[in-house]
């Protein structure tokens, strides 16, 4: 697999949230604001980078039938490291994200990357994959967080957008708002992708037609 494909897959074509619909728990749980979404995404990216790198390094060494417990141990270790780092140097955000940081360990997207990619590819490719997938995940969390913060409080990243007179739509901060906002974002992305596919098909037809005329 070539490297630009790895990047494009992680960021967009195979985006964890928008395409695979994995990792919904942190997505819906912490995205009450763009900032929360960003730091949750960053924490996940760091865990993903560590676990992908190590899993790739030991990929020849771990026997196939004990690979799952081995991966879990590796992922859990990195989650605990990130948990301690945030507790030490980002105490405020650590208190806000709370339980969702240790819960990264059960984010199936991370296990998925270890199993589907890192266990079969070189350390460098695995790191590129982790960075792309992590960035795509963070992008999704920030987008949803920004939409909810904007509609719910009239702010993005804590900055006033709609002004003081904006009537806060509380629902978007509450859990149902996460589902509703995510639904609309997914619909928009699907529409965008379909239009792109249709256009690609049209050009393909046009090229074929031109080719037949020439011959």
């Amino acid at each position: 697999m070539n490297r630009s494909d790895i990047v494009a897959d992680g960021l967009w074509n195979n985006n964890t949230i928008f395409v695979q619909l994995l990792g919904m728990c942190p997505l819906l749980g912490v995205t009450t604001s763009a900032e929360n979404g960003f730091w949750m995404g960053a924490a996940t990216l760091l865990v993903l980078l560590g676990s992908n790198l190590v899993v790739s390094l030991v990929r020849g060494v771990i026997p196939a039938h004990v690979r799952i417990p081995a991966y879990i141990t590796i992922i859990a270790a990195f989650v605990t490291v990130v948990d301690m780092l945030m507790n030490a140097w980002m105490h405020q955000m650590y208190l806000v994200l709370g339980l969702f940081i240790p819960l990264i360990v059960v984010n199936c997207a991370i296990m998925g990357r270890a199993e589907a990619f890192a266990s079969k590819n070189s350390p460098l490719d695995s790191c590129i994959d982790a960075l792309s997938v992590g960035a795509g995940f963070t992008f999704a969390l920030v987008l949803l967080g920004a939409v909810r913060e904007l509609l719910g409080q009239g702010e993005v990243f804590g900055l006033e957008v709609f002004g003081e007179s904006y009537p806060d739509m509380l629902m978007f901060i509450l859990p149902p708002g996460a589902f509703i906002a995510l639904g609309f974002i997914l619909a928009a992305i699907n529409a965008l992708n379909q239009r792109r596919a249709a256009r690609a098909q049209q050009t393909e037809h046009a090229v074929k037609a031109a080719a037949t005329e020439v011959s």
Binding site: I74, A77, M84, L85, A88
Partner: peptide
């Protein structure tokens, strides 16, 4: 042995981080 090695590595990583944090 492989599982043991993974566990030892993970423990070492955690102990080091704990020391610094």
């Amino acid at each position: 042995l492989a599982l043991f090695a993974v566990a030892v590595l993970a423990t070492a990583l955690l102990a080091t981080t704990d020391m610094f944090t």
